[in-house]
Amino acid sequence: MSEQQQAFIQMISNRLGRPMPTEKPPHPFKGAPDFWKSYELDLEQRIELFRDNWAKAGGHSHRLSTMAEVKQFIVDHAQSLKARQILQQNQPELLALRLKEQLPTCQVTTWSPGNRDELISQAASADIGIALVDQAVAHTGSIVVTSSGNTGRSVSLLPTVFIAIIPVERLKTRLGETLATFDGRPRKQFPAGIHFISGPSRSADIENDLTIGVHGPGVVFALLIG
């Protein structure tokens, strides 16, 4: 512990009028109230609630059955949006779609470790970013993505359009179910960036007038699979 840290913490203990506790203080009110922890919806209800929340926030959602349908959806949209650049995470489920072959006129880039400057500039000029999400939350209409060598933060942030693919079994009822997966996770497996996304980028800073797509993607698709 640095001297400065020690002095800062000591100052707090002094003001609180006791020495710093050496053991973890008992925390009886940790997390959500008990009644909330038993709140659970079945799969179809979760899907319906997620889609409802996502739409209210200004996002689009579709329920698809297979990854083959996902492929068709992306190809159709890339063509109708006249997308020239697509950026996808380096995830086996996405690579299996073989988008490069499906969209010969499009530049399809896959995220990869250790290629910072080039990837960020690709992301900044990309029309569409595509990611398979880690988790999703029905109650708040959110998806959860995390950073790693194969999954960049920029993919869900810099392109104009973002497509999030959600295998339905990853869709939870409550926010707490997803947060609990980070409590106690070992440091080595802890991602540097954990991002909850609940719709398109928005602002109401000019005369309370809602504007979509201020800095992040203005068009977001959630594709629920299964």
Partner: peptide
């Protein structure tokens, strides 16, 4: 604050980028 169920982005940042990460 705004009556939203959650803000559009809620981000948890735990240190600088990991060695393999290409952004952050």
């Amino acid at each position: 604050a705004t009556g939203q169920k959650l803000t559009v982005y809620m981000s948890g940042i735990s240190g600088p980028r990991r060695e393999a990460d290409s952004d952050g």
